[in-house]
């Protein structure tokens, strides 16, 4: 069963890579961190994780804290993280909270 788990995790990674390729905007940023997210996705996730407000972090704050990223690439990262189940939207589609609270 361990073997089966590994193969399904691998498949998920391949699918997500494909998704990013189709979406385009990542350019040379194919660097993957240990948890299978790109550096940009990880930054977005960490900021959302770090937000103490009950309604979560809103998109505007995210944009202000990631001045080197474009709105489109932040949106992409948010969409990806939300599809993977790492984050979810709260009061409206601009507020996000993390599911991976330790």
């Amino acid at each position: 069963s361990k073997c089966h788990n590994q193969s399904s995790a691998g498949r998920a990674l391949i699918i997500s890579n494909k998704g990013m390729g189709e979406a385009g905007n990542f350019g040379g940023n194919s660097f993957m961190t240990a948890n299978g997210l790109s550096a940009a996705q990880n930054q977005v996730l960490n900021l959302i994780k770090a937000c103490p407000r009950p309604e979560g972090l809103n998109f505007h704050d995210l944009k202000n804290q990631l001045p080197h990223m474009t709105v489109a690439s932040i949106k992409q990262a948010v969409d990806f993280l939300s599809n993977e189940g790492h984050i979810y939207s709260t009061v409206d589609d601009d507020h996000f909270k993390s599911t991976d609270a330790e």
Partner: peptide
């Protein structure tokens, strides 16, 4: 809000599905 609970539950399910 029900919406938040539902989104959270859906997100946790997706996360769990990834980790199985």
């Amino acid at each position: 809000l029900v919406r938040i609970q539902r989104n959270k539950a859906a997100a946790l399910l997706r996360l769990a599905a990834r980790n199985v």
